[in-house]
């Protein structure tokens, strides 16, 4: 499915600000895996996401999706394979366009865009069905401008726009972090449902340890550009926040310094 081989990337090489953002990362995801990624600020989580999505070019290593090498593909071509929901609810939608137009743009993700109407009667029906699964009444507001939606609604729409064309890899980049607790819980449960129903191979970065424990079948912890902890299946389901903090202290010999991770 997704394979990362020996990925390394260094920022500001040769200057006093030199920083090894990713240090020889190897990661393999099976079809249908749902991996949660935690780690303190600067651990390399976002860099990892950017390398997979094609936003950043690693200095060394390969990204392979569905057996195809990805590194030579520009970001827009790679996004036919990789779907991504951003932290900022504004980032995933076009505010001046309607809900149906946004969905139409997303619908063309893995097809060739042509000079034919983007929103047809038939597609409208399909969009409606898809929006119903979100259960927040957006199916009755197809022609409403997306700019009028709340942050939570926009994030739910982004999630749908990213997933309903079933990308090979789904990247969730702290996609609930900018929402209030109620909305965040809604998006979290939607995420769980969508991933369960579609069986998408998913990589989710989160600052919330509880969320990382509740969701997915595998958890990895990153620190200083390395994967320092990797648990899956049965073992992961028994894990607690305490366990994670202990594991971190055992491996790194220091306390986990980021309160936000624990409390968030």
């Amino acid at each position: 499915m997704l394979k990362l081989n020996n990925i390394s990337i260094t920022f500001n090489e040769g200057t006093p600000d030199e920083k090894k953002a990713l240090d020889n990362i190897n990661l393999e995801l099976e079809q249908g895996d749902f991996i949660t990624v935690i780690g303190s600020n600067g651990a390399g989580k976002s860099t990892l996401m950017n390398v997979i999505s094609g936003n950043l070019m690693p200095d060394l290593g390969d990204v392979v999706i569905d057996g195809e090498p990805m590194l030579h593909l520009p970001e827009y071509k790679r996004s036919a394979f990789v779907g991504r929901v951003f932290q900022d609810p504004m980032a995933g939608t076009s505010p001046s366009m309607t809900i149906e137009e946004n969905l139409a743009i997303a619908y063309s993700r893995n097809k060739k865009r042509r000079l034919r109407l983007g929103v047809t009667k038939q597609r409208k029906g399909m969009f409606k069905e898809q929006l119903k699964t979100l259960n927040i009444g957006l199916e009755n507001r197809l022609t409403a401008k997306v700019g009028l939606l709340s942050g939570g609604e926009r994030q739910a729409l982004s999630l749908l726009m990213t997933t309903f064309t079933e990308p090979s890899i789904l990247l969730l980049d702290e996609h609930t972090a900018a929402l209030d607790p109620a909305r965040a819980a809604l998006i979290t449960s939607l995420t769980e449902e969508v991933v369960r129903n579609s069986g998408l191979t998913t990589l989710m970065v989160t600052h919330n340890m509880q969320q990382a424990l509740d969701l997915g079948n595998r958890l990895i912890m990153m620190d200083k550009g390395q994967i320092i902890f990797d648990v899956r299946g049965e073992e992961k389901s028994r894990l607690t926040i305490e366990d994670l903090l202990h594991a971190f202290k055992r491996i790194r010999g220091i306390q986990f310094e980021d309160d936000r991770v624990v409390l968030g």
């Binding site: 996004s79 951003f86 076009s94 505010p95 001046s96 743009i105 993700r109």
Partner: peptide, 10 residues
């Protein structure tokens, strides 16, 4: 409106 989104939608 949102270049980043357009790119992320291939």
């Amino acid at each position: 409106d949102n270049k980043k989104m357009v790119r992320s939608l291939s």
